[in-house]
Simulated scan of single mutants.
Amino acid sequence: MTTTVRQPGATARLKPTFDGAALAAELDQVRRHAWQRQRVYGDQIGQASKVDWTCLALRSPGGDGDRTDPGGPGPVDFADTPWLERTPQAREVLRSIPAPLRAVRYMALGPGTHSHLHFDTKYGPSWGVARLHVPITTNPDALLHLDGEEHCWQPGEFWFGDFSRNHQVGNDGTEPRVHLVIDCLVVPELAEIFPDSWREFLLEGGAVLNRPATPLPGSPKEWECAFEVPETFTDWEEEDGAFLDPAVPRRRATVHAEEDHLLLTYEGAAPVRLIHLEDGEFRYAGWSEERTVQLHCAGGEVVLRSRVGSTVRTLTLPMLHHLR
């Protein structure tokens, strides 16, 4: 990973602190509902966790209250689930975050449960994403090991963790350890809740800063087109810049209108909704500006970009045809 500014560390204590007792009382209400095992997300929803690691979604792709995965590029963006209406204390936490929210989940690690050592691909500011934690219930034997350091965050505290680094969680206590886990896009305003020591990294080249969505100029039909892309570009977990290799096989991509928005469909893959940024450049719904597609319909070109911090990799390709 190449960035121009060094990240200050793997974790940061954030501002403010919340009422842990009030959050715990609210948690008791929704714990009466049977939570489901956490699932991963790749090109689609993956298998359920084999250990006692359960979730309740307050925000999810499409606002589906039964989804326990963190989501990713897909045909719908993130929305509140019905559970968020029932958790006013959690809503207060979310209102304090000056950034667009992605998945928000209560995550419960059962007694005697341990994860394997792993990392969450591209879940860090260098790719435009931040994962925040507010512990609600914990115990001294519920520990997070992140990037070689041990943590036991306390109820009501507010933390950032770079979970793109190696980490493992375990609970050797007798009660579940429950955190409110919040994924958000990195924007300049997010630096306000980080320590001052993070300001340079977040604002001056270490992080991908996401631009706000803007209305699509003209009719969606005017943007319909087809082109070929390196197949590695269709894999949002691909190694940074792998799509630039001229030896990588290509697959057909089609942009077509659906009501008031655009869907990008790669050959053999599920469609992804496009979110317009500016000048015909789009990110994927459910993802950050780590990956964008820019359509120059008048010029008959498509520009593919991937980003890591201030590093931008670009590939310009011809359109096969403009479908208008």
Rank of each mutant, 00 (worst) to 15 (best):
T2E: 15
P8I: 08
P8C: 13
G9A: 03
R13W: 08
L14G: 01
T17R: 12
A21H: 11
A22L: 12
L23M: 05
L23W: 13
V30G: 04
R32N: 10
R39P: 01
S49W: 03
A57V: 02
R59M: 07
S60D: 00
D64L: 06
D64C: 05
G71P: 10
G71A: 03
P75D: 09
V76I: 12
T81K: 03
P82T: 05
P82G: 10
R86I: 11
P88T: 11
L94V: 09
L101K: 11
V104N: 06
L109G: 06
L117A: 05
T121G: 10
G128F: 08
A130H: 01
P140S: 08
L144N: 00
G148P: 04
H151A: 06
E157S: 15
F160K: 02
D162Y: 01
S164M: 08
V169H: 03
D172G: 11
T174P: 07
H179E: 08
I182V: 15
I182Y: 02
I182H: 00
V186G: 06
E192M: 10
E192F: 03
I193A: 01
S197I: 06
R199T: 14
F201N: 03
A207F: 07
N210W: 00
N210R: 10
A213L: 07
P215A: 04
P215K: 03
S219V: 06
S219R: 04
E237V: 11
G241D: 11
A242W: 00
D245A: 03
D245I: 01
P246L: 04
R250I: 02
R251S: 13
L264K: 02
A269D: 07
P271Y: 05
V272R: 11
I275A: 07
A285R: 05
W287F: 15
S288Y: 10
T292A: 07
T292M: 10
H296C: 11
V308K: 09
V312C: 04
R313G: 02
M319E: 04
L320Q: 12
